[in-house]
C-alpha cells in the first residue's frame, strides 16, 4: 500500500503546532498501525529528521498508553486500541489524518504525546478501597454473586487511555470516572467508602476541567474496551444519593 499521512507536529507544549504531510510506500496489510508509524520514523531517522513522537508501550491493547486521533476517531476506525489496529483496515492511496487527543485537561507535550496525569489524580481522589497490606479477611469469606462480580469486572476493564474524553465534544471524563466508581460500588469491599468515593472523584473530575456529560454516548461508541454508559448512570445515582445523605455531613 502507498499512503499519505497528515500528522500533527508540535515541538513542545508551548509550540503552536501544525500538520505535516508525509508519503509512505510498501506498507503491508499485516502491519499494525503503529508498525506503519515505526516505518515512517525509521525513514525520517535515516534522513536525519526528527521522528514523530507518539505514546505506546505494550502493543497488546492493555496498557492504555497508545492514543491517536485517526481520521477524526479516537484509536481510528475499529473499536480497538491504536496498537491493535491493523493496516488491513485501510486501502491503497488513502490519506490518513493523525492528531493527538484534543482536550484541555490533556495538554500536548510533543507531536502526538499528551499528558493524562489528570486521570491519575481522579483515581487518587478516591478510586480505591482503604485497606492496608495485611490483616484482611480470607478471600472466600464474603461470597459475591457471579453476576455482580462479572459486572464489576466489565467496569474494571477500563485501560485509562482517554479515548472517551477525546471522543466527547465536552471532553467529559464521565465514562472513565464512572467505570471505577461502578466497580467499587458493586463489590461488597467498596461499600464502606461508597458515598465519599463518588463525591470526591466527581469533584476531582470537575476540578481537572473535564466537561459535563453530553448524553450522546460517543464515549461508549469509541471505547476500545467496550465500557458501557450504564456505568455513568450508576455513577450519577451514586453521586446524587451521596450528596443528599453524605457521610461527611
Amino acid at each position: 500500500m502507498n499512503l499519505t499521512l497528515k500528522i500533527w507536529r508540535q515541538k513542545n507544549n508551548a509550540d503552536k503546532g501544525d500538520f505535516k504531510e508525509y508519503k509512505i510506500s510498501d506498507i503491508s496489510k499485516d502491519m499494525s498501525f503503529l508498525e506503519m508509524l515505526d516505518v515512517l520514523n525509521e525513514n525520517l531517522s535515516e534522513k536525519g529528521e526528527d521522528p514523530v513522537h507518539f505514546d505506546h508501550d505494550c502493543r497488546e491493547g492493555i496498557c492504555g498508553m497508545c492514543s491517536l486521533y485517526i481520521d477524526g476517531k479516537p484509536h481510528g476506525p475499529q473499536q480497538t486500541t491504536t496498537c491493535q489496529l491493523h493496516m488491513r483496515s485501510f486501502s491503497d492511496g488513502d490519506v490518513i489524518t493523525i492528531e493527538p487527543w484534543r482536550a484541555k485537561p490533556f495538554p500536548v507535550m510533543k507531536d502526538l504525546v499528551v499528558d493524562r496525569s489528570a486521570f491519575d489524580r481522579i483515581i487518587q481522589a478516591g478510586g480505591y478501597v482503604s485497606v492496608n497490606t495485611g490483616g484482611v479477611p480470607d478471600a472466600n469469606e464474603i461470597p459475591i454473586p457471579k453476576s455482580i462480580a462479572d459486572l464489576a469486572m466489565d467496569a474494571a476493564q477500563c485501560i485509562g487511555c482517554g479515548a472517551c474524553v477525546a471522543a466527547c465534544k465536552n471532553a467529559s471524563a464521565m465514562l472513565f470516572t464512572s467505570a471505577k466508581v461502578s466497580q467499587l460500588a458493586l463489590l461488597p469491599q467498596g461499600q464502606v467508602e461508597r458515598k465519599i468515593r463518588a463525591e470526591k472523584m466527581v469533584a476531582q473530575m470537575d476540578a481537572e476541567g473535564f466537561g459535563a456529560c453530553t448524553n450522546t454516548g460517543a464515549c461508549e461508541a469509541e471505547c476500545p474496551k467496550g465500557i458501557s454508559i450504564t456505568n455513568i448512570a450508576r455513577m450519577n445515582r451514586e453521586y446524587f444519593s451521596a450528596v443528599v445523605s453524605s457521610d461527611t455531613l
Binding site: 480505591y128 478501597v129 485497606v131 497490606t133 495485611g134 484482611v136 479477611p137 480470607d138 478471600a139 464474603i142 461470597p143 459475591i144 454473586p145 457471579k146 462480580a149 462479572d150 464489576a152 469486572m153 474494571a156 466497580q183 467499587l184 463489590l187 469491599q189 467498596g190
Partner: peptide, 14 residues
C-alpha cells in the same frame, strides 16, 4: 489473594 480481594480485584467466581 486475600489482599487483592480486599482491594476490590474482581476475580472470576463460581
Amino acid at each position: 489473594i486475600d489482599q487483592c480481594v480486599a482491594q476490590g480485584v474482581p476475580f472470576a467466581r463460581e
